[in-house]
């Protein structure tokens, strides 16, 4: 993972979470993971293609996802319904968009795919040939892991 890519994601995740949830956000230690990564329960995936290619995964437990969606909507949600899913999608969009803007300013050019949401138990994700950077963000509702696996086209 190029050093230049790391900060935009860390910063934008911090800023966006803090802004939309209006709560204390703290960042855990960053670390690297190779190939397959277990998914906590709800994962929003955004793909990248261009000078830089790969994907970004926003991963959290179902419980955290419902709570986050409740706060963002300003109403108590009971389950992970369409509204909750749409809200998590939007969160992923906001964080990615802000990070990507920063990367564009640094001169990297690429396109994004719309986020897709995956839910279920015992899932894992594998990205061949790219190691993933894990940015754990801790919020009062649980943990959101941002899993970034991108690299420049060789």
């Amino acid at each position: 993972m190029r050093v230049e890519y790391i900060n935009p994601f860390v910063e934008s995740a911090y800023n966006v979470l803090k802004e939309v949830l209006n709560c204390q956000v703290s960042r855990g230690e960053l670390y690297l993971k190779s190939t397959s990564t277990p998914v906590l329960g709800v994962a929003a995936l955004v793909g990248l293609a261009g000078d830089v290619e790969g994907r970004i995964l926003f991963d959290m437990s179902k419980d955290t996802a419902i709570k986050v969606a409740s706060v963002m909507n300003g109403e108590e949600l009971k389950e992970l319904d369409d509204l909750a899913k749409a809200t998590i999608t939007e969160l992923a969009n906001m964080i990615t968009a802000q990070a990507v803007t920063k990367l564009h300013d640094l001169g990297f050019k690429f396109d994004l795919t719309p986020p897709a949401i995956f839910t279920g138990d015992n899932m894992e994700v594998t990205t061949a040939e790219v190691e993933a950077l894990i940015v754990p963000m801790v919020i009062p509702y649980g943990k959101v892991e941002i899993n970034v696996a991108i690299r420049e086209r060789l």
Partner: peptide, 15 residues
């Protein structure tokens, strides 16, 4: 130069 945060025991993508 590409400076990368990388663990050499993971997949090394270099030409």
């Amino acid at each position: 130069i590409f400076f990368e945060y990388h663990d050499i025991l993971h997949v090394n993508v270099v030409p």
